[in-house]
Write a protein that binds this DNA or RNA. Structure first.
Length: 417
RNA sequence: GCACAGGUGGGUGAGUGGUUAAAGCCAACAGACUGUAAAUCUGUCCCUCCUAGCGAGGUACGAAGGUUCGAAUCCUUCCCUGUGCA
C-alpha cells in the first residue's frame, strides 16, 4: 500500500497529519476543492498551486461521459491530462446515483444512468466504476456507493446501506485485481509544461522538471512512481440512523480500506442532524486511517468537523457560491451583487490577504458580477477558495497548539492586533 | 405638404372589443446554493391600504373627445416617430 497517513499532533479528537500520496503530500485536515470536469471552474492549475491546494477532486461519472476514460488514460491519466502533478481524488459516481435521481435506475448489479448530456444510456456497476477510476488514475479513488436520499424510511436506509456494503466489497475485489492498470503504474508520471526549470510554486517532494520536445509536444517529465498504486477508500452510509451508521462503519472497516469516508450527508437534512450523524459515526472509524467527510460544508462547518477529528472534506459550496456572487468573509457571508456595494471602495474582506482582497474593491467586484464578466467568477472563486484554505491552515495551526477544541473559522480566528 | 407604417409599463415586445394591471425576454432588487445536469434556480418588479388575499381602492397602453353594458383594442381630431415621394 502506497498511501501513508502520519498523524503529527492531536488535540482532543482533532488531529494534524500528512497524507503521503504518489503525487505529493497533503496536509490534513484538508479542504479539497472540487474540479468535477478536471477543472476547478474558473481557476487555472498554476493559481491553485499558488493558493496552496495540495489535492483536487474529480468526478468519474462526468469524466467518463466527457471526454471519456480511455481518452484521459491515453493522455497520461488525469494528472497528465490536466497538467496537475499534485494529488487527485476521484468520486466514483455514487453521488450521481443521488443527484441524478430523475435520470437513473438502481438495481443490485448497478445503476443505469441516462446521460444528462445527450440522453444516452450508461450502466455503472462497482466493477465498471473501479475500471473507470483506475483509468483516470487519481491517487485516491472512492468505492462505488449509493448515496441514500433524504428523507429515507429506516428500512430503505438499511437496504441502501446493505447494498453499498456489497458494492464496497465488489469495488475492493475489482480494484485489488486491476490496480496495476493505473496509467502511471511502473511508468513516469506525466506532467507537462513548456517552460524548463521553472516551477517556482511546487511544494512537491518530487520536483518535476518540465520542457517540450522537438515535435512541440509537451514533454512528460517525471517523478518516480515505480510500484505506486492508487488507494481505494470505503464509504459509510446508513441514512440518519445512528445504529445503521455504526453498523455500516464497522462492516466497512471489516472489508478493509486505507481510508474511510462518511457519505450520504449534506443531502437536504438539517445541519444539526449532519453534525450528530458525523459525531456518532466517527468513533467507529479507525484512528490511524484518514477520515473523509464528503460534501461538507460552510467555513464554520469545515472548521468544526476538523476539530471533531475529520481529516478530509470537499464541497462545491465555495466554488459554486462564488460563481453566484456569494462570498465568504471573516465577517460572514456577503452577496456581492447587492446594490449597497456599488460604490464601496473597501476590500471584500479587510482581514483577508488573498490576491483578490488585497487588490480589488467591493465596488469593482460588484460591477464585474453585474456586468456578467467572466472575471467576476474567477476572482470570486479565488477568494472563496483562499478563504477556505486559510480556514484549514488556521485549524491545523490551532490543533498543533493544542487548541483543537476551540472554534475556528477563516481569518476571523486570527488574533486581532 | 402628400402617402404609407407606427406610438403599450425602466427597456424591448406580445396583445386588435370583455378571463388585461396588460404575455415573454432584458434590466433592476432580493433570496437560495453543502461528494457540481448549477455563469444556475426562486421571488419581487405602477401607487396606496389592510384581515397580506387568485384582497380592496386608485391610476395606466401618445393626447383629447366619441361609440359601447364594457376600449390598449373601433371612430374623430390633434401631437410625435420612421420610411418613401415632393
Amino acid at each position: 500500500m502506497f498511501l501513508q497517513f502520519q498523524i503529527e499532533a492531536t488535540s482532543g479528537p482533532a488531529r494534524v497529519g500528512r497524507l503521503i500520496t504518489p503525487h505529493g503530500v497533503v496536509e490534513t485536515p484538508v479542504f479539497m476543492p472540487v474540479g468535477t470536469l478536471a477543472s476547478v471552474k474558473g481557476v487555472p492549475q498554476d493559481l491553485l498551486e499558488d493558493l496552496g491546494v495540495q489535492i483536487l477532486l474529480g468526478n468519474t461519472y462526468h469524466l467518463y461521459l466527457r471526454p471519456g476514460v480511455e481518452t484521459v488514460r491515453g493522455l497520461g491519466g488525469l494528472h497528465g491530462f490536466m497538467s496537475w502533478d499534485r494529488a487527485i481524488l476521484t468520486d466514483s459516481g455514487g453521488f450521481q446515483v443521488f443527484s441524478l435521481s430523475e435520470l437513473r435506475k438502481v438495481t443490485e448489479d448497478g445503476v443505469t444512468f441516462r446521460s444528462h448530456l445527450d440522453g444516452s444510456s450508461h450502466f455503472f456497476r462497482p466493477e465498471s466504476a473501479m475500471e473507470a477510476e483506475i483509468g483516470l488514475g487519481a491517487d485516491i479513488i472512492m468505492a462505488f456507493d449509493e448515496c441514500t436520499e433524504f428523507p429515507a424510511e429506516r428500512e430503505r436506509a438499511r437496504a441502501s446501506m446493505e447494498m453499498t456494503l456489497r458494492w464496497a466489497a465488489r469495488s475492493k475485489k475489482y480494484f485489488e485485481e486491476h490496480k496495476s492498470e493505473v496509467p502511471w503504474a511502473s511508468r513516469q508520471s506525466p506532467v507537462a509544461s513548456r517552460q524548463e526549470g521553472q516551477n517556482p510554486v511546487s511544494s512537491s517532494e518530487f520536483p518535476v522538471s518540465r520542457s517540450s520536445d522537438d515535435s512541440g509536444n509537451l514533454k512528460l517529465e517525471t517523478r518516480n512512481l515505480t510500484g505506486a498504486t492508487q488507494s481505494l477508500f470505503g464509504i459509510v452510509q446508513g441514512g440518519m440512523e445512528f445504529d445503521l451508521r455504526k453498523e455500516s462503519a464497522e462492516r466497512t472497516v471489516e472489508i478493509g480500506f486505507p481510508g474511510y469516508a462518511i457519505g450520504g450527508l449534506s443531502v437536504g437534512e438539517p445541519r444539526e442532524l449532519t453534525r450528530e450523524v458525523v459525531e456518532s459515526t466517527l468513533q467507529y472509524l479507525p484512528a490511524d486511517r484518514p477520515r473523509y467527510l464528503m460534501g461538507v460544508g460552510t467555513p464554520e462547518e469545515i472548521a468544526m468537523y476538523a476539530n471533531m477529528g475529520i481529516d478530509m472534506m470537499d464541497c462545491v459550496l465555495p466554488t459554486r457560491a462564488a460563481r453566484h456572487g456569494l462570498l465568504f468573509t471573516s465577517e460572514g457571508k456577503i452577496s456581492i451583487k447587492q446594490a449597497r456595494y456599488a460604490t464601496d471602495q473597501g476590500p471584500l474582506d479587510p482581514a483577508c490577504f488573498c490576491r483578490v482582497c488585497t487588490r480589488y474593491s467591493r465596488a469593482y467586484l460588484r460591477h464585474l458580477y453585474a456586468a456578467n464578466e467572466v472575471l467576476a467568477q474567477v476572482l470570486n472563486t479565488i477568494h472563496n477558495l483562499s478563504f477556505y484554505l486559510d480556514t484549514m491552515r488556521r485549524v491545523r495551526h490551532s490543533i498543533r497548539l493544542g487548541e483543537g477544541a476551540r472554534f475556528h473559522s477563516g481569518v476571523s480566528s486570527q488574533p486581532k492586533p
